[in-house]
Amino acid sequence: MASDLVVEARGLTKYYGAQPVVNGIDIEVHRGECFGLLGPNGAGKTTTLRMLMGATPPSAGSLDVLGYPIPQQARRMRERLGVVPQQDNLDPDFTVLENLITYASYFGLRGPELDRRIAGLLDFAALEAKAGVSIGTLSGGMKRRLTLARALINDPELLILDEPTTGLDPQARQLIWQRLRALLGQGKTLILTTHYMEEAERLCDRLMIIDNGHVLVTGSPAELVRRHIEPHVVEIHGGGVEEWYDTIGRPLVQRGERSGETVFCYVNDERPLLDALSRRPELHFMHRRANLEDVFIKLTGKELREG
C-alpha cells in the first residue's frame, strides 16, 4: 500500500440477505485530504462508513485502513481513528468533562498527559465554561462540538464524520466547519458524509457520489461541476411556466428539469434564455452558476424531462 493512502478499498461489498447495500465500490483516500461520501438516503453511505471503522465485516472485497487489514485488525486501527456518529451517543448521566474522561478510558488513556489533552480539546470545542455541566443542558451545537472533541481524544490520524452538521442552525454549522478546517490544517484526514452540498463543496478536496451501492462519480467538487453539468442554471417559476417552457424555453436550453412548480434550465450560454424571459414579466426567475447540488440531482434525482 502506498504510504499516502489512508483508505484503500477494492470491490467493497456488503449484502443484507440477498440484497447488496454496497456493491463493489473502490475507495482511495489520501493522507491529509477531506473526502466526502455523498448519496441519497439508503445509498449505502453509512454501511460503507461502518465497514471502514470495522463495525461490520464486508461480504466481499479487500479493505485497508491506516495500513491495517479490516476487519482482521480493526481494533488496532481504531486506536488511531476518531468517529463522529450520526446520532449523538454522549453519556447523558455525565458532565462534559466526565464524558471525555470516560471515553478516554476506552483507549486506555489517563494521567496528566490526558488532562492536558482534555484542556486543549475543551478549548478547541469552545466548551471550557461548560466542563462541569451535564449533557442535558447543552444545545445541539454544543453536543456536536463535544462529540467532535470526544472523537479527538486519542489524537487520531483519521476522522470519520457521519453527517456532522445535520440538524444544526447556520451559526453552529459554521463553527463546526471552521473546526474541521483547522483539523485539516493540522494534517488530519477526514472522511465525511453529508446531505448538504454546500458543506461538501466547501470542505471536501475530493468526493464520491454513490447510489444503490454503486459509485456514480468521483472527483473534486469543481471538477464534477465542470464535467457533469452545464455552467449556468436558470430557475423559473410563475403562472404559465410549463406552457412557456414547452413552446419557447425548450429550444434555448441544453437540458431542463421540472421539480414541483419550478423549471430548472441548464445552459451553456444563458443570454438567449434571459432575453426571452425579459419579455415575460409574469415569470419569476433566478440565474446562478451551476453547483454541486445540480450535479447531485442530475446523477441521483429523477429526471422528469429531457431538454
Binding site: 481504531r78 486506536e79 468517529v83 451517543n89 453519556d91 447523558p92 476506552y106
Partner: peptide, 11 residues
C-alpha cells in the same frame, strides 16, 4: 443511549 456504539468506535 447507544453507549455500546460509542465503545465499539473505540478500541
Amino acid at each position: 443511549q447507544n453507549t455500546w456504539g460509542g465503545m465499539l468506535a473505540a478500541p
